[in-house]
Computed example of a mutant assay.
Amino acid sequence: MPQRRAITGRSQEPRARFAEELRLLRAMKGVSLRALADAVGWDASLFGKMEKGQTLGGPEVVEALDLYYGTGDKLLTLWELAIADQTQFKERYRRYMALEAEAVSLWQYSVAMVPGLLQTAGYASEALAAGGYRGEELEQQVNARLGRRALLESEEPPSFRAILSESVLRNSLRDARAWWEQLEYLVEVGERPNITLYVLPFGRGLHAMVNTDVMLMRLLDGRAVAYAESDLLGELIEETSQVERLLRTYDDLRDLALSPAESRTFILRVLEEAPCEPWI
């Protein structure tokens, strides 16, 4: 049985720690995903997703892996920690959604995807399907995401500023028509008085949010809070000094971005480059 390693700074997040351990054990065993699937009895794609942190799998498959690798209940313990952390993440996310609904001002920076508040049905469907949702659950999640748009369409909507990395506009969808509709929707919402869009083009240099989506929210009581999200972790930030640092970083990014008028022209140019009749 492999010796248990200390949890290092790069693997403290339970879900990442679990995925990391799966990768290490298979590398030490010297087997391919296909060979692992043949030996344990589940599909190779499931093991691939587990090793990438895209899914945690179920207790039965984890117990089978413990048996195969001879690790006692080590993997099951790590899996239970990751499941518990995922539940806590959902609780933090629900609190974030409640704060978002109460905010009077919203400022977002998006690294690679269209902000949830600005997604069309086609975009949301492909994005959520990439995250593993299928069937009825996918439909429910798409409807929930589209429901968030009502916040910006209410009688007294909050002001919303969004800085979009150029990557957001270059990561097109597989469905050409859905991508065209998403770009057209960005142009449309950018004309609303409560919404301002900025594009941060390539070549403006590295910055403090280069790998992290951030939503900053000013609440009715004057407080500002933030929600930062990377590939595997979302964090609600309420400590004043941390939020103020993010606000300053956001202002720095806005200084690097194109003006709203220039950003609109940029999005229109990307739209013009998209298929004119993508439904054909």
Score class of each variant (00 low, 15 high):
residue 251 D to W: 03
residue 69 Y to T: 12
residue 122 G to L: 09
residue 101 A to I: 09
residue 77 T to M: 00
residue 38 D to V: 11
residue 174 R to A: 12
residue 103 A to M: 05
residue 239 E to N: 10
residue 113 M to P: 01
residue 72 G to Q: 04
residue 56 L to H: 06
residue 243 V to A: 04
residue 185 Y to K: 03
residue 41 G to T: 11
residue 268 L to R: 15
residue 88 Q to F: 05
residue 135 G to D: 01
residue 250 Y to L: 09
residue 247 L to V: 06
residue 248 R to K: 14
residue 22 L to C: 12
residue 140 Q to T: 00
residue 72 G to S: 05
residue 184 E to C: 06
residue 272 E to A: 09
residue 113 M to L: 14
residue 278 P to C: 12
residue 183 L to S: 02
residue 105 S to G: 03
residue 163 I to R: 04
residue 112 A to V: 08
residue 26 R to E: 09
residue 275 P to Q: 11
residue 59 P to L: 13
residue 220 L to I: 07
residue 102 E to G: 06
residue 56 L to S: 01
residue 259 S to R: 08
residue 139 E to L: 04
residue 261 A to Q: 06
residue 246 L to R: 05
residue 57 G to M: 13
residue 233 L to N: 07
residue 46 L to N: 10
residue 40 V to E: 11
residue 168 V to H: 02
residue 207 H to P: 05
residue 66 D to V: 09
residue 168 V to N: 00
residue 30 G to Y: 13
residue 46 L to G: 08
residue 64 A to Q: 11
residue 102 E to L: 09
residue 211 N to M: 10
residue 177 R to F: 14
residue 107 W to L: 08
residue 25 L to P: 08
residue 208 A to L: 14
residue 7 I to K: 02
residue 124 A to K: 02
residue 91 E to A: 14
residue 264 R to I: 02
residue 69 Y to H: 12
residue 260 P to R: 12
residue 24 L to F: 01
residue 179 W to F: 03
residue 128 L to P: 04
residue 153 E to R: 13
residue 262 E to W: 02
residue 97 M to P: 01
residue 34 R to S: 08
residue 213 D to F: 06
residue 138 L to D: 04
residue 66 D to G: 03
residue 152 L to N: 05
residue 17 R to K: 08
residue 178 A to R: 04
residue 130 A to Y: 03
residue 97 M to Y: 00
residue 70 G to Q: 10
residue 218 R to T: 15
residue 253 L to M: 12
residue 220 L to V: 12
residue 253 L to H: 07
residue 12 Q to A: 14
residue 208 A to C: 02
residue 140 Q to K: 13
residue 69 Y to R: 09
residue 183 L to A: 09
residue 23 R to Y: 01
residue 142 V to C: 01
residue 178 A to V: 12
residue 241 S to P: 01
residue 106 L to G: 03
residue 8 T to Y: 01
residue 192 R to E: 10
residue 62 V to S: 02
residue 137 E to A: 10
residue 86 Q to N: 08
residue 74 K to E: 04
residue 162 A to G: 07
residue 202 F to L: 10
residue 85 D to W: 04
residue 38 D to F: 11
residue 68 Y to I: 11
residue 69 Y to E: 06
residue 66 D to T: 11
residue 172 S to Y: 08
residue 86 Q to T: 07
residue 30 G to N: 13
residue 57 G to W: 13
residue 241 S to F: 12
residue 190 G to N: 05
residue 8 T to P: 00
residue 10 R to S: 12
residue 27 A to S: 15
residue 70 G to W: 11
residue 74 K to R: 13
residue 127 A to N: 01
residue 236 L to A: 08
residue 67 L to C: 02
residue 61 V to N: 09
residue 177 R to N: 15
residue 135 G to K: 00
residue 30 G to I: 15
residue 31 V to E: 14
residue 55 T to Y: 03
residue 257 A to M: 04
residue 196 T to S: 13
residue 70 G to L: 04
residue 169 L to V: 08
residue 19 A to N: 10
residue 204 R to M: 15
residue 164 L to G: 05
residue 80 E to F: 00
residue 20 E to D: 14
residue 103 A to N: 10
residue 80 E to I: 04
residue 128 L to F: 05
residue 13 E to C: 01
residue 280 I to F: 15
residue 11 S to N: 13
residue 195 I to H: 10
residue 267 I to F: 05
residue 163 I to M: 13
residue 81 L to R: 12
residue 30 G to W: 13
residue 19 A to F: 15
residue 262 E to C: 03
residue 164 L to H: 06
